[in-house]
């Protein structure tokens, strides 16, 4: 018993004791700073989103009725693909220069650091899509209230995409043909988010209640927030072995 008491690390006077959430904030801050220094990567994802969405009217034709009907699905599928495009960046650079290994060896829980990285990925990759989606929705003749539902659904859905995608990114880290493989692994798992996200907007246009869709999205987000960093950490440790 005494041994255990004495074994506790003693904090030197004058140094602040870090609260337990600090690794998460530190990891988020670091990745956001890196993203700000390399703006082109973030902007590429955003423009990919814009271009993919713009391709659909060109391929299908300019009839407003049809475009309005497919708008939620098109915007959601484009958001899915844009998130996917940004995923390999999540761990690849840190894996190459050894930072990831240092993170795994550090006394801070790797799960928190990984959560911070995922949060930063969403802030730099998912949030711009959410903010841009209403603008693109206008091109598809969606009403203001539908645009609101679309934004809320994306706000709940894009973090879910980042969380699930992080598992795939960790599994394919340093693997042959990582990018295509990542798409193969992650896209089937994105289907529920797509269904309820696009479904919310469609239900709203059809005059139905959207509460159920949004609640289910939020429930999946809560589940993923708990489990995904855990699975990602396990996958990262396997990749680092």
């Amino acid at each position: 018993m005494l041994g255990i008491v004495f074994a506790l690390p003693r904090v030197p006077r004058g140094k602040p004791v870090f609260p337990p959430m600090n690794p998460l904030i530190a990891a988020t801050r670091r990745d956001l700073l890196l993203a700000l220094r390399r703006k082109s990567e973030v902007l590429t994802t955003v423009f990919f989103f814009v271009i993919v969405v713009s391709l659909f009217p060109l391929g299908i034709g300019p009839e407003p009725v049809l475009l309005k009907k497919i708008a939620p699905g098109v915007l959601w599928v484009a958001a899915l693909l844009a998130t996917l495009l940004g995923l390999p960046r999540l761990f690849a650079a840190d894996h190459l220069d050894g930072t990831l290994e240092q993170m795994a060896l550090s006394p801070q829980p790797l799960g928190l650091l990984v959560s911070g990285k995922i949060l930063a990925h969403w802030l730099s990759c998912g949030l711009p899509l959410v903010l841009l989606a209403p603008l693109l929705g206008l091109q598809f003749d969606l009403e203001a209230s539908a645009l609101g539902v679309l934004t809320v659904a994306l706000l709940l859905g894009t973090p879910l995409l980042s969380l699930i995608g992080a598992i795939g990114a960790a599994l394919t880290l340093g693997v042959r043909g990582g990018g295509v493989l990542l798409a193969l692994l992650v896209l089937p798992l994105y289907i529920p988010a797509l269904i309820f996200g696009a479904g919310a907007v469609e239900a709203h246009i059809a005059g139905l209640d959207v509460g159920g869709h949004l609640s289910l999205l939020a429930a999946m987000l809560a589940l993923a927030t708990f489990f995904a960093p855990w699975a990602t950490t396990a996958a990262l440790r396997i990749a680092l072995e």
């Binding site: 394919t172 693997v175 042959r176 043909g177 493989l181 193969l184 692994l185």
Partner: peptide, 10 residues
Amino acid sequence: IGFIALQAAI
């Protein structure tokens, strides 16, 4: 297919 592809890639 994803499972098989992942195992084949490593």
